[in-house]
Every structure is written in C-alpha cells, then in structure tokens.
Nucleic acid binder design. Structure first.
Lengths: 278, 278
DNA sequence: GCAAAAGTGTTCCCTTTACACCCATGT
DNA sequence: ACATGGGTGTAAAGGGAACACTTTTGC
C-alpha cells in the first residue's frame, strides 16, 4: 500500500443521493428534482449533494433529507443530532462508474429513505422544480431487469447527454432520469420491496397512528399486489411486539371503525410476510 | 446544487476494502493482512487499496481480490474482463466517518467475497504478513451487537492509534483490527449469514463439485449451529434447480460414498433455509 | 336497507421437524 | 464387526391460503 501522498491517489468528489419513497394515492412514489444545469439540464434527478469536509455519510444524507423534505429521519447510527420524525433512513449502495458524471470523477453513496405521505415537496423554495413521481412512471419494465446489465434508459441518457433532447419534458410521458439515477432508484425500490417482507419497515410509510387496513394498503402499493385483508390482519396483529394498540379508533377509511395502532418495538418479522408470486 | 468547481467540494480518497470469507476446518475465516506502517502499524487489517482513476468500484475490488488471493471472482456486474473462478463478489457497504483514518478523509467501499478453501494466502510474496483468521477470534461478542453503536474494539483502537499498544501481537490472543475494520467485518459476516438463508450463495464456499454433507458443513460453520443431516439433504435436493448431480461420488469425508453435485442455475432459495433459533 | 371496511372462525394443505431405519464404505 | 457418514420413510405440529360469516359505521 503506497503512503498517503496526495499525488499517489486520484481525488474524488463524494456525494449522497437520496431515494425517498412514499405511498400516495395507492402508488409508490419517489421524490425527484428538476435539474437546472447541464448535463441533463431540465431532466428529473434524485435529490442529493456533496458530502462536507467534516460530515459523516449518514449525516450528509440526513441533512439533504431535511433540506428537501423537512423530514427528520430516524437514523439508528446517528442518534444525537436529529430528532426522529418517524422517517427511516439507511444506506443503499455506492455508485462510482468512471463515466457516470461527464464532468469529473464522482462517487455517490445512495441512501434510501421511507416517509409517510407528505403534503408537497419544497426544493429550496422553488415549488415546481420538485415533485413526487410514481416509480412506475420513471421505471417501466426495468424493475424486472436483474443487476446484470445497465438499464436501457441510462444508456440512452448517456448518448444525448446535455443535448437538446432533454430540454423540457411534459408530464404524463415516460421520463428518463439523469445520470445513473434510474439504476439507483430501481435498486432502492427493490430494497424496500424485499425489506418489508421480514421487517417492520412498512410502518415507516404510515403516520404515527394507523390502522391495519392502512398498513395493508402500504404493502399492496409497494408490492403492486392485492392481499387478503383477513389473513393480513391476523398476521400483523398476531406477531408479538409488531403493533401496539394506540387506544382509539377511526373511520377515515369508511366502514366499520378500525383500531388505531403504533409501530411496536419488534423490528424483525418472523416468520416473514410472504410476497405473492407475480 | 453548486457547479463542479474543484474548490466547491472537498476532495476524498476512495478505497475498496475486502471481507474475504472462507470455511477452513469447520470455522468461518477471513483474510487479514498485517500493516507495515503507521497508523495501526503491526495490526491486522482487511486487505484493500485505492480505486484507480479510470476504474469501476467493482473492478477495483476484483483487482484487489486477484492481487491478494489469486482468485478470479464472478461479478455479475462486470462479466467481460474477469474469468469466473467460482468465487462470489458483491458490494457490502461504504464507510466514511470523518475520523476513520487519522491522516486524511478516506471513503472506503467495502466488498464481500466468498471463496472456497484456499491453500495459503500470498500478500505480495510476503507469506507471514497475511493469514486466514477465524472471525470468532477477531470479533468476540461484537457480532451480537446491533448497528446502533460502534463496537468497543473500534473505539479502543481510536484511542491508542499509532501508539505502542499495537506493536507486535501474538497469535492466540484476541486481536483488534485496524481502523473501523471490525465493524466492516461484522457487517460482512452478518450479510453472509443472512444471505445464505434465501440464496444459493453457500455454494460459493464449496469447490466446483461438492457433496450435500460438505454444503451442510458450510451452513453449520457460517451459522455456528448444528443442522439435521437428513432434513438438510431433503431440503437442498428437493429444491428444483438448486443442485445438479455431477455424476460421480466421493468418500473423502469417510463413510458411505456421497453423490457429487454442482451449483444449479437457481440463485434464489424459496422457501428459504431456516436458521435455527440460538 | 345497503354498501363498505373491520374483524373472527374454520378447513385444507404444504412445510418443517423429529426420529426410526437402512445403505455403503474404511478399518 | 463396527464406526462413520449418506440417504429414505413417516408421523406429528405449525403456519399459510382460501373463504364463509359477523360486526359496525356512513349514506
């Protein structure tokens, strides 16, 4: 191993990118911001920014999350600074292909955040430069692709980088995310989909007090399947420590009043919730 | 987001560190190298090195793996350059606390490699500066600690960094790994332990052809439990695509000749192998 | 009354588990 | 013969899937 002579290793810029997921109107959505500069000017991108000189990676992600959404995440690795607001934040993966940013060598440590339904994003005061986009809109069939090859949209984006094609995009059509953010988003969605199987993470999508039906609709939105309400109810209420009754009831979903619950202390779900085939 | 002016962001050094796991004599072992320089001079550390200017993160990890072990990893993300030798390589997590290296700001992208039992490590030709160490020796009860707080050994290592305490270590006693490598190793071991539950990853610890009993002993070594040989046999041979008969038999374990198998194409094990409680 | 959502009970079936038992080799 | 590990059979217990049915609200 060479000594740490500054000329002995190449300097990198290190950033954090955020996959912030939430469930809105029965659909899994992610926060995207519109780029104001080249490359990929005018394209949607995941929020993110540079890691500061004296900042931990998780701290940088938590800071970006607050800046973009006002959410205070509950990061178990960094308890002192941030008051928990119920949101979940964890490291996802790191992306560092040499050509992922045409300007320079950037390594991005992507983080995954799960948040309850929020009113509206605010990106530095500019309202219409940030939005909650359904992931299905951003990732067509790419989600089904394995980790073997880069998704087609990313390869295409590389081709016309900073060109005219990415000028202004209309809502409704399929949008291609900037950089390799489609890959990052797909990885984040897959992480969330698999992790709610065996953990209590799905409660991070819910408000502090929620009903069993609301929790079930989270699973249905994230997995894109329909679950049997009766078996689901038995499963989650029968797992000790998973849900604790909050005391009240609500009829905000219509029908018979439903008991309100809070997330219990149990973080692992054993045996896991089974995701139906196809 | 500020423009990519080199003065607008702090420069980082980016390294890859490797958690190379193997099973030797019924024990889960990892590859460690002895540090020849301060800080932590004389202490054991995970192998690793700088990411080069034009190199992918996975490529850097594969290069380090070859340099340290001669293994050619099968990285599904980078098929063209490296011929597969059966070893498994995947990204683990990224560690970037500001003070994790006292000399400068270093972000390390840790990777996890699983390898079959190898004859002996060679670290740049220096034989006794690298060894396979049982993970139980390197991590006492820390494995049971959650991700909440840093393990005690790491905090202690920070205290007497580059001091006299780490001069020469005898074999047999508990050793404290350099930097935050105890945390990285613990995370890697936990990843391996959980991932063999629901994937065919345990076959990466075996030679190309292996018996059901040998595969079972891998599970037993990684999990540290005893499994019922009969039920294990039924489970793995009954899962379609998991194992394919190689045609021959062997008596290298003694007793009745056992059928030889290869790893099948099935990469996911469903339903998963259940890890016994405690 | 009727629709809608919340819960409960019950049956069937598949998997896991535990263990009795037999098989094929080395010494 | 006997120890050792490989492999099959079988019965009991547990959990998931499917679904009939009751409960409690709003309209």
């Amino acid at each position: 191993m060479p000594p740490y002579d500054p000329s002995a290793f190449p300097p990198f810029a290190v950033t954090v990118d955020l996959v912030v997921l939430t469930v809105r109107r029965h659909a899994l959505c992610t926060l995207v911001v519109r780029r104001g500069e080249a490359p990929y000017k005018g394209r949607w991108a995941l929020p993110g920014g540079f890691v500061r000189e004296d900042e931990d990676l998780g701290g940088a992600a938590a800071r970006e999350l607050v800046e973009e959404t006002g959410l205070c995440a509950h990061d178990p690795a960094a308890p002192p600074p941030v008051p928990s607001n119920g949101a979940h934040l964890e490291q996802l993966a790191t992306y560092g292909a040499p050509d992922r940013d045409p300007r320079m060598r950037v390594v991005s440590v992507a983080h995954l955040a799960l948040a309850p339904d929020l009113p509206a994003p605010r990106a530095g005061g500019d309202a219409n430069s940030a939005r909650w986009a359904p992931v299905e809109e951003l990732l067509g069939e790419e989600l089904l692709a394995g980790t073997v090859d880069a998704p087609a949209a990313v390869r295409g984006a590389d081709g016309d980088a900073s060109g005219g094609a990415g000028g202004e995009e209309k809502e409704g059509g399929p949008v291609a995310l900037a950089f390799d953010h489609a890959r990052i988003l797909a990885d984040g969605v897959e992480r969330a989909r698999s992790k709610i199987e065996y953990s209590s993470l799905a409660t991070a999508f819910c408000p502090p007090e929620f009903t069993v039906g609301e929790l079930r609709r989270v699973y249905e939105a994230v997995w894109g399947v329909a679950l049997d309400p009766r078996n689901f109810h038995r499963k989650v209420t029968g797992t000790p420590g998973f849900l604790v009754p909050a005391g009240g009831t609500t009829t905000r979903q219509g029908g018979r009043p439903a008991q309100l619950f809070r997330a219990g202390g149990a973080t692992l779900l054993n045996p896991p919730m089974l995701r139906p085939e196809v």
